[in-house]
Amino acid sequence: MSARRAELLAADSDGPALDVTLPGRRPPLGSLHPITLTRRMMERTFRDMGFDVVEGPDVELEEYNFDRLRIPAGHPARDMWDTIWVSDDGSGDPRQLLRTHTSPMQIRYLERRQPPIRVIVPGTCYRYEATDATHEWMLTQIEGLVIDEDLSFAHLKGTLEAFVRRVFGADIETRFRCDYFPFVEPGAELGVRWQGDWLEVLGCGMVHPEIIADAGLDPDRYTGFAFGMGVERVAMLRYGVRDIRHFYRNDIRFLREFDQFRGTA
């Protein structure tokens, strides 16, 4: 045995020494788009808390995007969303638009499910809005809806604080301030202290009792909360992206930057 071994050892050292500094032959590295990466990371934190994930249509009826969310035509709150409309085909059919938020799925989900409800809705939304470093006309939102017996603002806080801790780290400071969305009451905005500044991360609130009643539920018995947030915004904070327009330009040099975050979603 030892002779054979010596022979093999000698053979090992026979070959020429390699220049180990030459580049390797690299198998190609694939990647998820940074918005997919971030969306999945956010979805996972909610799945961990027992949330279902569903999607809804991008081209919505005005009724679902606005009216049934208590934003009738002429309502001052319609100014909060600049809308891209589908051309009227002249048939007098209900007006269609590119959804300005994922909130219409609150109504659609309530049409087919009974409490307990615990769901998030990721999806693309559209705003008729000039683009700049912090504004993009196409954006990705994650909507959330939770309805059960006797849920309170405490559960809203507990759930969203847990989400923010998982996304931004256990030591993140949070705050809730009063804000207004027509389909919640009370309404709030969650901010985090990120690199010294307070930044808004999401809008939220207790589901408006009229929305619960419209779904055929007793609002004295069933309560809940809803929330909505931008995936791009979270991605920009988490990964330090300074210009939102990078995301849908798909420059491979930008996409490659996210190779370092592989496996974090």
């Binding site: 808390m49 279902d52 499910r113 307990p116 059960d148 405490a154 507990g158 759930t159 847990a162």
Partner: peptide, 13 residues
């Protein structure tokens, strides 16, 4: 106050 979600986890859709 702040509290975790109570109750059953609904079946996924």
């Amino acid at each position: 106050p702040s509290a975790p979600l109570p109750g059953a986890v609904p079946d996924p859709d």
